[in-house]
């Protein structure tokens, strides 16, 4: 049996080009729409770019928090799938997520979460094609570490800033 996929991520390798946002939104929205991309690159300070996307926690707190069962997991890819008809835009999944990853879509105001493009994520395709390899697809069994990657992007950026800039990194993000 093929193992489920995960998008491994190394934010220090992100160039900040945001082609992931463009590729994602062209796939899901038929046009370039950065704020409707299932992966969004935060930049609390220039040079410190953080791609923010679903980490596929093993216990899926977002799915469990949904009061109307609009969220489920794909049996093959294990991605979180949103039933946009059922979603009532209550924001429970956003609050339940340790990294506040889901958001309400700027168009239909429904919960929006990475669906792994059914197994071939477009964001990874453009990232690796450009040689950045900030995002790569791995075939691995789910593990407890994934959830630790579900973090507030500003917190991630604060760590990265210190990694890049040393002590000065403590000052560049308020």
């Amino acid at each position: 049996m093929v193992k489920p996929i995960w998008i491994a991520r190394d934010p220090s390798a992100c160039s900040g080009c945001r082609r992931c946002e463009l590729a994602c939104s062209m796939h899901h929205e038929d046009w370039m729409w950065p704020e409707a991309s299932r992966i969004r690159v935060f930049m609390p300070f220039p040079g410190v770019e953080v791609p923010h996307l679903c980490a596929q926690c093993m216990d899926y707190p977002c799915v469990n928090a949904c009061p109307v069962e609009a969220l489920s997991t794909d049996p093959d890819t294990k991605a979180v799938i949103v039933d946009r008809e059922k979603c009532i835009s209550c924001g429970a999944c956003i609050r339940a997520c340790p990294g506040t990853v889901p958001y309400l879509h700027p168009g239909d105001n429904k919960a929006t979460i990475c669906d792994l493009c059914g197994g071939k994520p477009k964001c990874v395709e453009v990232c690796t094609e450009a040689g950045y390899n900030c995002l790569t697809v791995v075939n691995e069994d789910p593990n407890i570490h994934r959830k630790l990657y579900s973090r507030n992007p500003v917190e991630v950026a604060k760590d990265l800033a210190v990694k890049f800039f040393g002590e000065k990194g403590e000052e560049v993000i308020e």
Binding site: S12, A13, S15, G16, C17, R18, G131, F164
Partner: peptide, 14 residues
């Protein structure tokens, strides 16, 4: 250089 490939929006020339 702490980041060797830094790009602006929609750029891969970095």
């Amino acid at each position: 250089w702490v980041k060797v490939k830094w790009a602006d929006f929609n750029c891969t020339t970095n």
